[in-house]
């Protein structure tokens, strides 16, 4: 009995030692020399491995930073300036601040704006749908509504609004990694400057058809009339291929274009009150719906002239933001 126990212990111990030696030798043989700073940089990364930086993952990004010893071409959109500062600190480098970005859906083809002409019966994927035909409405350029962008978002920042059939960006959660931009076969989603106090003005349409055809397909389409281009005092708006585009670097958020747009294709978000033509009247509180939706923005509201906009419409416009603040 005792001998059995002793033998067992002896054999197991010996086996352990032999295997340990083997393990050690193998580990030595296949050891990979790596810059220890890669690990350090990786530690300060967000670790989402989303690929928004253009690298396969956070480690690949860290490796690239260390190898290049220069952060000019590398930027982590998820971690933003905070993370980049940390990375710079680890590597002892300088980093330029970048303005925070956010994904913007440039389509306003809601169910009510775009009459449906077709039903889709295949696999629910924008990629499949766009390879097949123009979509369920007369608009060839607009959102297909299958939610490839929602599926691509790793941060849960996108959701489909069942009412409008369009994706909605939660700007609190959006990290501007750009996965949705790549996922959208219609290239509707764009990364734009988040803007001061998250205020932005953008053209919510990418329809390149001529005015009449665009208008026929969608009530809220950009018809390329060029009124916005003329109205802009900063030269930020350009109409090309029958569609207007606002350069966010140049835009000063005056919202003159918003007022001019005949179809309401230009959207302003997170402003305390809807844009109107400058009127002599002094500031007055915004409509009830708008104020309820934007408690944060309310105190900072600049002098905004009163508007004759129905409460429902104002509420609808700020709907995306409402979600983000909940």
């Amino acid at each position: 009995m005792t001998t059995t126990i002793i033998w067992t212990i002896a054999i197991i111990t010996l086996l352990g030692v032999v295997l340990a030696v083997v393990l050690y030798l193998v580990a030595e043989k296949f050891k990979v020399e790596e810059d220890p700073r890669i690990d350090e940089v990786e530690k300060v990364m967000p670790g989402a491995n989303c690929g928004g930086c253009g690298f396969a993952g956070c480690r690949a990004f860290a490796q690239s930073c260390v190898e290049a010893m220069n952060l000019d071409n590398n930027f982590c959109p998820v971690g933003g300036n905070e993370t980049m500062k940390k990375v710079a600190a680890v590597l002892g480098l300088e980093v330029k601040e970048k303005a925070p970005m956010v994904a913007v859906v440039r389509c306003n083809g809601t169910c009510s704006n775009r009459p449906r002409t077709n039903d889709y019966g295949g696999y629910s994927s924008c990629k499949v749908k766009s390879a097949l035909y123009s979509g369920d409405t007369g608009c060839f350029y607009g959102c297909l509504g299958c939610g490839d962008c929602v599926a691509a978002c790793q941060f849960g920042a996108l959701s489909m609004d069942p009412e409008t059939g369009l994706p909605v960006v939660d700007e609190e959660k959006c990290t501007a990694c750009g996965a949705c931009v790549k996922a959208c076969p219609k290239r509707i989603i764009e990364l734009r400057n988040k803007g001061p106090k998250n205020r932005r003005v953008f053209v919510s349409c990418v329809n390149m058809e001529k005015g009449a055809a665009a208008r026929k397909a969608c009530k809220a389409a950009c018809i390329g009339c060029g009124k916005c281009e003329k109205a802009c005092p900063f030269g930020a708006v350009k109409v090309e291929h029958n569609v207007a585009y606002i350069d966010f670097e140049k835009c000063r958020l005056c919202r003159k274009c918003v007022v001019e747009c005949p179809t309401g294709a230009i959207h302003d978000v997170n402003f305390p009150a809807p844009a109107v033509k400058p009127a002599p009247k002094p500031a007055a509180p915004a409509s009830a719906a708008a104020s309820a939706a934007k408690p944060v923005a309310q105190p900072a509201a600049p002098a905004a002239p009163e508007v004759k906009v129905s409460a429902a419409e104002a509420g609808k416009k700020v709907e995306p933001e409402k979600k983000s603040e909940e």
Partner: peptide, 10 residues
């Protein structure tokens, strides 16, 4: 000019 084909593509 552009006209839509059977898949709605101009």
């Amino acid at each position: 000019g552009l006209r839509k084909d059977l898949a709605g593509i101009p």
